[in-house]
Amino acid sequence: MSEATPTASTVLPALPALGAQAERLIELGVHAFSGLAADEIRAFAANAEGSQGSDGALLAVHPGRAPASALAPLLRRDGKPGFVVTDMPDVDLFTPCAVELPDAPLYLVTAPDRGDHMANWSPSEALPALTDEGRTPLLLTEGIHWVLQQPEALERNRCFMTIGSRLRKANGTMDARTPALWISNGTGRDGRERRNAPKVGWCWWNNRHTWLGFASAKDRTAKDG
């Protein structure tokens, strides 16, 4: 899983306006598999635009409607579709943990950040630090939404973990795997044909990686006006 030591952090462009984000989701067909009407997404975005905190916000579909397994193949890089690693067939069982998620089909994720300053931290170290900063870790589905709207957010050697999603085992303990988004090197079971493709994978809860930050947001809101 290792990659080269990261270079200086990149300043990302502003997220598209919420109306443009809505059209992007519709273009990709997200409304179709999430049980939403295209006009429902458009209306939510139109009502939310201009409200306090909507500038720089990410439009997200609730993971219960748009799971990671359906969203990941919509990612594109160098013309190659995104994919979930073969040893994560249970990707959709990674659900929100210690995250307050709006009870709504659509919501806003405000001020997403890649967490480059936490590169080479472990998830166990990053979570309390994010809490101290007043930030909330992104869910895996939110991370995918972010890259769908802003492909520049996934940069080689500047990728990120989404530790707001965890898998609780039958005995009540947490699975040690934690989801992440990065760029495939086309090695191992990925296959050479997937080199440079966006990749949903996992890392261990107590391990560090110099090329993985910890994506987070200021908050989430389902307000539509």
Rank of each mutant, 00 (worst) to 15 (best):
T110G: 11
M88C: 11
N120T: 04
A66F: 15
G35N: 07
V91C: 07
S34A: 15
T131N: 13
Y107A: 04
D92N: 11
H62Q: 14
T110F: 01
F94Q: 10
H62I: 01
A126H: 05
D92V: 08
G134W: 02
D103L: 09
L130C: 00
L28C: 06
G50W: 10
V61G: 01
D113H: 14
S34G: 11
H117G: 13
A72L: 07
A57P: 00
P73H: 00
A38S: 03
T86H: 13
G79K: 06
N120W: 13
Y107H: 07
R42A: 08
P105F: 03
A38N: 11
L74K: 09
H31M: 14
P73M: 05
H31D: 15
G82K: 06
V99L: 06
A66R: 15
P102K: 07
D39Q: 14
S54H: 03
G56M: 13
R76K: 10
D103N: 14
S34Y: 08
A32W: 10
A98L: 10
R42Q: 05
R135D: 01
A111Y: 11
P73S: 05
H117K: 13
D90I: 13
L130Y: 01
P128T: 00
A48M: 01
P112I: 14
L101S: 09
A119E: 09
A43Y: 05
D39T: 13
L101K: 12
L71K: 10
L101Y: 01
L59Q: 03
D92I: 12
L74Q: 00
S124Q: 12
P128Y: 05
V99C: 08
F94R: 15
A98M: 12
G115C: 02
R76Y: 00
Q52W: 13
H62V: 03
D116S: 03
A46F: 06
P81T: 06
D87M: 08
N120Y: 14
P73L: 12
C97T: 14
A48T: 03
D78H: 14
P89L: 02
F44W: 02
G79D: 06
E40N: 04
P63W: 02
L71D: 10
R114Q: 13
D39H: 15
E40R: 14
R65Q: 11
R76P: 06
H31G: 08
R42I: 00
T86E: 12
G79R: 09
A66K: 15
V30F: 03
V99W: 05
I41M: 13
R76Q: 14
E133S: 03
D90A: 13
A46T: 00
V61Y: 01
A45P: 01
P102A: 10
D113P: 04
E100C: 07
G79T: 05
